[in-house]
């Protein structure tokens, strides 16, 4: 009896401390998310906006669950600490199991189904007709962008002709007339408010194309051509980074997405065509 009372006294401090820590965890987490201390940059496409809305919805649902569960845990450890009482004997409650299983199922699946739109808008549809096609080629640790030029046709590529030092990083076949006007540049320039389709390919290992403002990541896989499309609605310069581990220079693999005005884009093309 003496032993159990001593034990009971010893339970107050850890119970209080645990409850306190769990409460602090909830407060700190809610504060950081609510105050937007480390926000992603504003989205620049309508789909990125959908992604943000879905993110917010998920944040609210998960946030409420997080607060309830952690505070519930805090309450339970504090309220039911050993005070010399006898524990309540029960093997469970089927009705409660059914209720919380159903609620979880409905909420979680509802969330996933709500999130379908932001994914489907982007990935289930082809690019609009008239979208500007730009080929993105990744190599260790460089992005190379190719525009089809005035003829709107990409020239043939031949891997055996690849030679970055001699200025042919993609292996363009000089005998293919369609390739003569192709524009090959190290940064990506697109006009604002105009649909763009990127054709992702990779020469060596798996890389990735990630622009935060587009809320878009896509691996570029050797042996595959993966299309993605977007319409950027804000002029500016944005970072393109690689998020797929690709070798020792992975962290330096970087380029820019320049979203420019319609006229700016025209002059970019002219300048490049003259330089080819």
């Amino acid at each position: 009896m003496i032993r159990s009372r001593k034990q009971a006294r010893g339970s107050a401090a850890p119970a209080f401390l645990l409850a306190l820590l769990l409460t602090l965890l909830v407060l700190a987490t809610v504060y950081v998310f609510a105050a937007h201390l480390f926000p992603p940059p504003p989205p620049i496409t309508s789909i990125a906006l959908l992604v943000d809305r879905q993110y917010d919805l998920t944040l609210y649902v998960a946030g409420v669950a997080f607060i309830l569960a952690q505070l519930g845990l805090a309450y339970a450890v504090f309220r039911f600490r050993d005070r010399g009482q006898r524990a309540h004997f029960t093997h469970g409650n089927v009705a409660m199991e059914v209720v919380w299983t159903t609620i979880t199922l409905v909420v979680f699946l509802g969330l996933a189904i709500a999130g379908r739109k932001a994914w489907a808008e982007d990935r289930y549809t082809a690019a609009e007709p008239g979208a500007i096609q730009i080929e993105v080629t990744t190599t260790q640790f460089v992005y190379t962008f190719r525009y089809p030029g005035a003829d709107n046709k990409f020239g043939r590529l031949d891997p055996s002709l690849v030679s970055a030092p001699t200025g042919n990083p993609l292996g363009l076949d000089p005998n293919d007339p369609a390739g003569r006007d192709d524009i090959v540049v190290p940064t990506l320039t697109v006009p604002v408010d105009h649909p763009v389709e990127l054709l992702l390919r990779s020469q060596d290992v798996v890389h990735n194309f990630f622009v935060r403002e587009l809320r878009l990541q896509q691996d570029s896989v050797p042996g595959m051509m993966v299309p993605v499309h977007f319409t950027a609605n804000r002029i500016g310069q944005y970072d393109i980074v690689c998020t797929q581990l690709c070798g020792l220079g992975h962290n330096t693999m970087h380029s820019f997405l320049n979203v420019v005005s319609e006229s700016g884009y025209e002059s970019f093309l002219k300048r490049q065509a003259a330089g080819q």
């Binding site: 879905q54 998960a62 997080f66 952690q70 932001a118």
Partner: peptide
């Protein structure tokens, strides 16, 4: 498990994964 489980429902959605993947 609560914390990590709930952060998982973000990653389980492909639309959000396009922003959070590999971060």
């Amino acid at each position: 498990f609560i914390t990590g489980g709930l952060s998982g429902i973000f990653l389980a959605q492909p639309a959000l994964d396009t922003m959070l993947h590999a971060t």
